[in-house]
Design a protein around this nucleic acid. Sequence first.
DNA 1: GTTCCGCATGAATCGATAG
DNA 2: ACTATCGATTCATGCGGAA
Lengths: 292, 292
Amino acid sequence: MEVKTDIFLGDCKDILKDFPENSIDLIFTSPPYADQRKKTYGGIHPDTYVEWFLPASEQLLRVLKPTGTFILNIKEKVLNGERSTYVMELILAMRKQGWFWTEEFIWHKKNCYPGKWPNRFRDAWERLLQFNKDKKFHMYQEEVMVPMGDWAKTRLKKLSYTDQRRDESRVGSGFGKNISNWVKRENAYPTNVLHLATECNNKNHSAAFPEGLPEWFIKLFTKRGDTVLDPFMGSGTTNIVAQRLDRNSVGIEIVPEYFEMVKAQIEPSKLMLFDKREDYGNASIRRRYAVR
Amino acid sequence: MEVKTDIFLGDCKDILKDFPENSIDLIFTSPPYADQRKKTYGGIHPDTYVEWFLPASEQLLRVLKPTGTFILNIKEKVLNGERSTYVMELILAMRKQGWFWTEEFIWHKKNCYPGKWPNRFRDAWERLLQFNKDKKFHMYQEEVMVPMGDWAKTRLKKLSYTDQRRDESRVGSGFGKNISNWVKRENAYPTNVLHLATECNNKNHSAAFPEGLPEWFIKLFTKRGDTVLDPFMGSGTTNIVAQRLDRNSVGIEIVPEYFEMVKAQIEPSKLMLFDKREDYGNASIRRRYAVR
DNA sequence: GTTCCGCATGAATCGATAG
DNA sequence: ACTATCGATTCATGCGGAA
């Protein structure tokens, strides 16, 4: 399947205004956390984080399909010995904006950064907030099923040798015993807690998440040929994974260095480049490049 | 060490008014969640949950020592396909009340409730919100250190291998430098994610949370001889664990059946009973029993 | 004594049915 | 229309009895 990957340089709340509404199947993003990445993003103060984010989420609400999903990876930082409250305030504000706050997944970071403080342990988890436009949305649960616990193996022992053999011989016949029932016995639906290690080898971007994170949500909420958006592209992990999984994707990044880095990484035949050229005197002019 | 366990029958927001201020080292509790446990607690509607809880937390703020900690175990339910927001509203309201919201621990429930729904996975985590009166509080981190897990061992092998190849810059500053310390150390500080299964097969006291949960926080935030309070005692798990760990404890429970159940379980020589006898015509009269 | 196996039991949630 | 109740779905855990 041929998919395309479009990347834009600029501020997502502006860029997105030119997007048609109801056109995106999944938004997966990890915006700059408040006050966290001063060197790269200038740092948004916790007190102004909500008002900074709302114009972007307003556009995201517009471009998302009614059956689509928005996954927001975020975690509040510690300020003066206390957890900031801007994430909670953001959730409340986004609900007023029209979003449904469907669920909160936990990303358990199995190998979180070491360290020691007198009044706090290492932070080993982040929020993955699921927002929707509608109570009905697409969800392909079978795509992310996981092997059952060990107890299930003992259960399989109960079946006689001949039973197992006979069933294997019927694979694909579509007759007799339903193979999917076997699959159900060996696989279970996951929970809302994800166990993933952080990847420490991507040092070009200061807030990279592991590929397994967008992969899980892309499999869960989209099918091949759908379109994934990351409005705070960063190092482009979401887009790279989407491309690998045969999903179209759009990435928007405000920092030229990250934009160039992703441009160099995306497979050229699949890349569409959009560059906002304000020096042409008209902010609405976009130049579109088709590489190769 | 001789410790005592005081249990009260009544509403904690009333009972606590007779307690001296700054007298409790740790409050660990799991209040009735909104609309849950209707049969025993009547069920508090999500819309009125915050106003129901604040009078209790006001008293808790008063009786807690400045160096003490309040751990609140809670999780919002799903309402009309959406997570309720009353927990976030409660955090915001408690901060206005004077609490510091220091940290949020995650309890990962390894054996969460089964089930399948078209738009949602099983809920496998609950919040453990840490509140404090002051930015300085007692924390005995060494008491909850854990043996390094298998992942750490294998990771150390990898690190020692890559270390030879001078690969530490890849992992980030501060990590590679301390490798030798890691190898020597057998115990590691835990993170803010706790992995515990619920105890669902204990018929005598069907505890809402496993003993390991209060045990961890009692060890972390108190020392022997300190005083632990559970204002929503339920089946008394907090008090039973506190007693086993040589901590004084206070429990308050509004449902007579639970109160009687705990009374029968607490070791008699350590029990002090307080009974609110309203039939004596004066709600403020308390009768104190010393059993044995 | 160990190990193995059967089984009840959860701070759940949705959709249909009933008042 | 709106709320209350009920059945169906589903899986890790630890206890108790058996091998």
